[in-house]
Design a protein around this nucleic acid. Structure first.
Length: 302
DNA sequence: TCTGGTCAAGGTGGT
DNA sequence: ACCACCTTGACCAGA
């Protein structure tokens, strides 16, 4: 088990997800920004290593406007050495990486233009991981997508579109149960037909589908969708409810009792946990302390 | 220097 | 047809 957090680190004074407005686009600015972002990413990874946080989600803002037509700069070629050396660090230390394109990436959209942009965005994400020479255990997670007033045919469309994706994307793609539309049961049905692994989101499951399956069952079924040889251990997203926020709002800081309970219920399984908590690395460090007595936790990557 | 409106991109659900 | 909301942090113009 590796513990991680997403995208940004608030302890070190280095911002690896800098971007800018489309209006301010220039090639010079893009180069500066990417250079900064990659340098900060390495600093964050070094921080993570020191704190034994071996799981990390890369921000989609690493290369601003990467899949936008305005960006004609060959950033892959230009920054290839930087990507390669960050990748080497990750592999040497046995770290695990994920990425999560945002809500605009919908491969089951009824709109062809949206599908086209989504595929471009997925290409960008897997290119980052490919440039780092990471194995197929580095994943890109998306939701199933919209329902378009007909969930069944939207699932059909997802399956069809997934099967048509380039293998460079398919080998890294995983789907995540969401909080409103596609619950774990839907994801399992889709996985049966496509072979796509399922990333279990604990918090979403509590908001959408909790009555059907216990956490233990969820881990059991989702673990079966990961091919341990190629995909690596299952990934799990964990968050808890913000006690003063509206239902669905992520907690500011980790609820250690709740997390301990989750670990207890899922003790039979090994997986990597991404803590989607507002205070990021702070809660991840707390969680690491909590699980450092757990037989599953990894103190190094191997 | 500070602040609040705004940002490439989609979709849902209420009116 | 239209609008608020989702959710989020940082950009950036204007005070």
């Amino acid at each position: 088990m590796r513990i991680g957090y997403p995208c940004i680190n608030r302890t070190i004074s280095c911002c690896g997800n800098k971007t800018f407005r489309l209006k301010s686009y220039s090639e010079a600015r893009l180069k500066d920004t990417v250079k900064n972002n990659l340098a900060c990413l390495l600093q964050i990874l070094k921080f993570n290593l020191e704190h034994r946080l071996l799981f990390f989600r890369l921000t989609s803002d690493l290369v601003p406007f990467a899949s936008h037509p305005i960006n004609t700069f060959d950033w892959k070629k230009h920054f290839q050495p930087e990507f390669a050396s960050i990748g080497e660090f990750i592999r040497t230390e046995g770290m695990r990486i994920s990425m999560h394109p945002d809500q605009f990436t919908l491969i089951n959209s009824i709109r062809k233009d949206v599908l086209g942009r989504s595929i471009e965005e997925l290409k960008y994400h897997v290119e980052i991981l490919d440039l780092m020479n990471l194995d197929a255990d580095a994943k890109v997670q998306i939701h199933v997508g919209g329902a378009y007033a007909d969930k069944e045919s939207s699932i059909e469309r997802f399956v069809r579109r997934f099967d048509g994706l380039d293998n460079s994307i398919r080998r890294r793609l995983v789907i995540e149960n969401d909080d409103k539309l596609y619950d774990l049961g839907d994801c399992l049905r889709i996985s049966e037909r496509t072979g796509v692994p399922i990333l279990f989101d604990v918090f979403h499951h509590r908001l959408n589908g909790a009555a059907e399956m216990t956490d233990e069952d969820c881990l059991k079924y989702t673990t079966e969708t990961w091919d341990s040889k190629n995909d690596g251990p299952p990934m799990v997203d964990y968050s808890s409810q913000n006690p003063v926020g509206v239902p669905g709002q992520h907690a500011e800081t980790i609820d250690l009792d709740d997390f301990a309970m989750f670990l207890k219920h899922t003790g039979r399984f090994d997986f990597d946990v991404m803590l989607e908590i507002k205070d990021k690395e702070e809660s991840a460090i707390e969680a690491f302390k909590l699980v450092s007595n757990d037989g599953r936790v990894r103190l190094n990557g191997f």
